[in-house]
Computed example of a mutant assay.
Amino acid sequence: MAQEEYQEHGGGEGDGQKDKYLSFCLGDEAYGMEIRYVTEIIGLQPITEVPELPDYIKGIMNLRGKIIPVMDVRLRFRKPFREYNDRTCVIVIDIGDISIGLIVDSVSEVLDIPSQDIVPPPDLHRNGNRFIKGIGKTGKEVKLLLDCGKLIHEDELDSLEGIVHS
């Protein structure tokens, strides 16, 4: 998706973000995240590995002079690694005081999903569900809506902030 199209749909600005979700894919599965977390969408950049981070944190990258950690969402969800290609994107999000790059297979579009079209995820008592805030119904499809705040544990956030701010 072009940066202009993202900004036209309210990316990074004010009140027009209510009920707006950026949709992306991991394999055949469709996900969404609230647009208010998203600061930008970029192509894959060079990533510098940092020792002793969880496997799903691929390292850090320099984004216009700002150092941000980069997470492979596939690995975070315990899916098999997939080679990056020309459709692979990095979604830069802000969680609290830190920006994080999320590597996804592809970005689709910005969708309006009114709250009445979102249902809670099934309570399966499995760890994989902790990242899912709800299930959005869009036409005949469903999107698994992420809880961006739960992608990183508190202790991991502390260590990432230490790396970024050192």
Results as ranks from 00 to 15, higher is better:
Val70Pro: 01
Tyr37Ile: 00
Arg76Phe: 02
Ile68Trp: 02
Tyr84Ala: 09
Ile41Gly: 08
Tyr37Pro: 01
Val107Ile: 05
Thr48Ala: 10
Leu144Asp: 03
Val50Glu: 07
Ile152Asn: 11
Gly11His: 01
Val90Cys: 09
Ile57Gln: 04
Asn85Phe: 02
Asp86Ser: 13
Ile41Leu: 09
Ile57Arg: 07
Gly12Ser: 05
Ile132Gly: 08
Asp117Thr: 02
Asp112Leu: 14
Asp15His: 15
Leu26Thr: 02
Val90Leu: 09
Ala30His: 06
Phe77Ile: 04
Asp86His: 11
Asp19Gln: 08
Ala2Val: 02
Gly149Trp: 08
His9Gly: 08
Thr138Val: 15
Ser23Arg: 05
Cys148Asn: 11
Leu63Phe: 06
Pro69Arg: 08
Ala2Thr: 10
Cys89Glu: 03
Met1Val: 07
Pro120Gly: 11
Tyr56Asp: 10
Asp86Lys: 11
Leu111Thr: 04
Cys25Trp: 02
Pro54Gln: 13
Asn62Glu: 06
Gly101Asn: 09
Lys20His: 13
Gly10Glu: 06
Ala30Tyr: 08
Asn85Val: 04
Pro46Asp: 07
Gly136Thr: 12
Ile98His: 03
Ile152Lys: 10
Glu52Cys: 06
Gly14Val: 05
Met61Lys: 09
Lys58Tyr: 05
Tyr37Ser: 04
Cys148Thr: 12
Pro46Thr: 04
Ile41Cys: 04
Asp94Tyr: 00
Gly149Gln: 14
Val142Trp: 01
Asn85Ala: 03
Glu4Phe: 01
Pro120Phe: 13
Met61Arg: 09
Leu44Cys: 00
Gly65Tyr: 12
Gly139His: 13
Thr138Cys: 04
Pro69Asn: 12
Val70Ile: 14
Thr88Ile: 02
Glu83Val: 08
Gly14Leu: 13
Asp147Asn: 15
Val104Pro: 00
Lys58Gly: 00
Lys137Ile: 15
Leu63Met: 13
Asp112Asn: 14
Leu144Ala: 14
His165Ser: 08
Glu40Ile: 01
Glu52Leu: 14
Gly96Glu: 12
Pro114Gly: 07
Glu40His: 01
His9Phe: 07
Arg82Ser: 07
Ile47Asn: 05
Leu151Glu: 01
Gly59Cys: 04
Met71Val: 14
Gly128Asn: 08
Gln116Val: 14
Ile57Glu: 03
Pro69Phe: 13
Asn127Ala: 13
Lys66Tyr: 05
Gln7Cys: 03
Gln3Trp: 01
Ser108Met: 10
Leu160Met: 12
Asp117Glu: 15
Gly101Pro: 07
Asp86Ala: 07
Val50Asp: 08
Lys20Val: 01
Leu124Asp: 03
Ile68Pro: 02
Ile95Trp: 01
Arg36Asn: 09
Pro122Glu: 06
Cys148Glu: 11
Pro54Ala: 14
Glu29Asp: 13
Ser106Pro: 00
Ser99Gln: 14
Thr88His: 03
Ile118Glu: 03
Leu111Arg: 15
Arg76Cys: 02
Asp117Gln: 12
Glu8Lys: 14
Phe77Gln: 15
Asp15Tyr: 12
Leu157Thr: 07
Asn62Gln: 08
Ser106Lys: 15
Leu145Ala: 10
Ile135Ser: 06
Glu161Gln: 11
Thr138Asp: 07
Leu145Arg: 14
Ser23Gln: 05
Thr138Trp: 10
